[in-house]
Design a protein around this nucleic acid. Structure first.
Lengths: 232, 232
DNA sequence: AAGTGGTCTAGACCACCAT
DNA sequence: TGGTGGTCTAGACCACTTC
């Protein structure tokens, strides 16, 4: 939605300070030359995403977004986050192969032993330390082709732009697990004896499960931020 | 919204199996005797919350909610979660006092040294082990009165039903921290030398920050689940 | 009383899907 | 082609806030 983007951009740019009042819905209707429902849909999105607070009888007010820094919320990829933070980051493709899934992966991807699966293991280096280990498993039915080159960049970008897959939603699970032999091999662990594990089940537009990802973070470098509205 | 509740209930009850097609928007319009936009608002909520997947030209389909078990998502309290899981749980009020906030708390609650603050420390026992330590700080401006009795139940319930506070949104932050002296005192830590810390900044309807909470979980008992749609 | 957001309506046109 | 969801419109009535 173009109106949402426009308003969000104005707020993010700081042109409207926190706690100031937005133009009223009727004023926005006049400004964008559209209907009130359309304006309201844009404002509701802003509200959901923590940009504004709407108050009946009073108006809509800008929230202090600067405090909601660096959301790993949603489905943003490592590359996007690293770029946003301006960190020196590097991706190392440790393993890339087409496998017959074992039982764990079959269960997680909800497939049979006849299917084959792309297995990608990448470590992520930030400021010279390997602190994240990403293990991706793609159902081959949806991803026929994968190369080292692609894995070194953003797989998501490739899948969305080149393959044309439409990623729709995901279920995320965060927990803390004990170290595996792989963690030892591919991460600079220091003295820590656990990792934070983010498990992600990713679905396409037609609700088919096409990817399972395990993102293993060194304890001290993990951070997750979320904005949540009550009741929704 | 009553239509949303009704549809969500039908799905949760299992009356509509996963992957089955919902009645079309027009059919729902006829059934609920309302307008299409109203139906669409309800369906959009269901989609956001992971109940259904909408497909252009095809219809809306029930997702498998059973996999999205036990969301700590949003602002649900310990009590609600424990009850949902049917666990043997107990709350111990370790400390309750009105304090002059130190610098850390002043910063977190964004208040001055003249303000006073309720400090509540509670440990949470599940199946005989104290595994969560909740530290709550309430700006006294909004919470004038607090007793041990209230803290043993649900403070949120008290604040919303008795005091009439309208909780609106929150910013949540998850990280892993080293143990403090308090963790040692109030938790059964086993061999673990870190805790998962969930920091919550809670805001009222008028966007005023009234509470800061630190929820400290034993590593092995922490779990966080989230459903997320791409792009939103 | 005037202005604000909250909710709903009846209708329109479009893009996509199955047939 | 007919049915589906996606988007938008112009208008209405309500509840709340402010003056």
């Amino acid at each position: 939605m173009v109106i949402y983007e426009d308003l969000a951009e104005t707020i993010k740019s700081g042109k409207w300070r926190p706690n100031t009042k937005l133009p009223s819905e009727n004023e926005l209707v006049a400004h964008y030359e559209t209907s009130r429902e359309t304006i309201r849909k844009a404002l509701n999105l802003l509200s959901q995403n923590g940009y504004i607070q709407k108050m009946k009888g009073k108006g809509s007010f800008v929230l202090d977004v600067s405090r909601f820094d660096f959301p790993i919320s949603g489905l943003v990829s490592f590359k996007e986050v690293a770029e946003k933070l301006g960190h020196d980051s590097k991706t190392i493709v440790e393993e890339l192969e087409l496998i017959k899934p074992n039982e764990e992966i079959r269960t997680r991807l909800n497939i049979s032993h006849k299917d084959s699966v792309w297995k990608v293991i990448r470590s992520r280096e930030i400021n010279g330390e390997r602190i994240i280990l990403d293990k991706d498993f793609f159902n081959r039915k949806y991803v026929s082709h994968l190369t080292r080159d692609i894995c070194e960049g953003s797989i998501y970008e490739y899948l969305e732009k080149e393959v044309g897959l439409k990623i729709s939603f995901a279920k995320k699970e965060i927990s803390v697990d004990e170290l595996t032999e792989e963690d030892h091999r591919y991460l600079d662990l220091k003295e820590y004896d656990h990792v934070v594990v983010v498990r992600n089940y990713v679905y396409l537009e037609d609700a088919s499960l096409f990817q399972y990802t395990e993102s293993r973070h060194r304890l001290d470098k993990f951070r997750f931020v979320e904005f949540a509205r009550r009741g929704v």
